[in-house]
């Protein structure tokens, strides 16, 4: 394994990491504040990707497509919250899980009815479609770099939102003391709706960003959502900081594991054994990480202080 490959895979890991963060931040917000488990969060990721694809073709520009897809995804988030989710806050987690599982089935089928069973690939404008030279001899796709920077920018924005705005104050207060927020005379229902829509937009954004790389496809959210769960479990459910660190950690470990684990194994075992066992182990690597973290810290790496 040479250094340039390591650098490139590191950046790929970062790219997966920021996408995971976009998904995990919404999950951790809805859980931290509303105590709500949303399995259908991955569906919003998928919806975002499909909106972005259609709007890119309609406007002829990926950038416009993305900018228009954001409010569309927010609207879907609002509709779901108003019709189903808000009736579930008072229920237990089992009900959350079952109802949002039902939502996934609805979303997947509706998407198929509207956009057809095939995936849609999203063309990038020429500016974003090329490669940049990072170091002499090391090139990296421009768009992937944009994802990393965009994701970090959103993370910074969320940090500012949570720590320095009135909404953020309410979010933090709501997470630690629900009744207090109610006592302050704030309409908790509206706050919940707003937070859910914010989470929907973040998930949708992740889908929009990945669409040009993988294409928008049915069920794309159902795979990554589990990884996002692993992220918030490792990070500590309800913790934004934990979600950020765990997302990058898991993005890096997953990507690096898939690329370099066989080389590492070859150091200690036969080539043949390494080549059969490495794919199996790298497929399980993040879950093993999760198991280890939980065995040591059942509440995750950064459990929220009040709960």
């Amino acid at each position: 394994m040479d250094a340039s490959l390591v650098l490139i895979q590191f950046l790929n890991g970062m790219q997966l990491g920021v996408l995971l963060f976009l998904l995990a931040s919404g999950l951790t917000l809805t859980f931290g504040i509303m105590d709500f488990v949303n399995l259908a969060h991955g569906s919003l990721y998928m919806i975002g990707a499909f909106f972005c694809a259609s709007l890119t073709f309609w406007t002829g520009s990926f950038v416009w497509g993305l900018l228009l897809a954001i409010p569309c995804t927010a609207l879907v988030g609002l509709a779901v919250e108003l019709s189903v989710i808000r009736h579930l806050y008072a229920r237990d987690h089992l009900d959350h899980v079952l109802a949002t599982f039902g939502l996934i089935l609805c979303f997947d089928t509706l998407t198929q009815l509207i956009w057809g069973p095939e995936g849609i690939s999203v063309p990038l404008p020429d500016v974003l479609d090329g490669q940049v030279t990072l170091l002499p001899g090391i090139v990296f796709p421009t768009f992937r770099l944009v994802i990393i920077l965009g994701g970090l920018l959103v993370a910074g924005g969320l940090y500012w939102l949570v720590n320095h705005t009135k909404l953020g104050m309410l979010i933090r207060a709501g997470a630690s003391n629900r009744t207090m927020v109610g006592a302050l005379g704030i309409d908790i229902q509206t706050l919940f709706t707003a937070v859910f829509a914010l989470g929907a937009v973040l998930a949708g954004l992740a889908g929009m960003l990945i669409a040009p790389i993988t294409e928008a496809s049915i069920g794309m959210g159902n795979e990554i959502i589990i990884t996002a769960f692993v992220v918030i479990i490792v990070g500590g459910i309800g913790s934004m900081k934990g979600a950020f660190i765990a997302a990058l950690l898991i993005g890096l470990i997953d990507t690096m594991g898939r690329s370099f684990l066989d080389d590492l194994f070859k150091l200690v075992m036969s080539t043949e054994a390494a080549e059969t066992s490495a794919p199996a182990v790298s497929a399980m690597l993040i879950y093993i990480l999760m198991a280890v973290v939980l065995a040591i810290r059942p509440q995750g790496l950064f459990p929220p202080k009040v709960r």
Partner: peptide
Amino acid sequence: VHWHLPFGIMLILTVL
């Protein structure tokens, strides 16, 4: 063939 849609809706209604 899109039976998951009514099924999903029934699932939600059952829970609710």
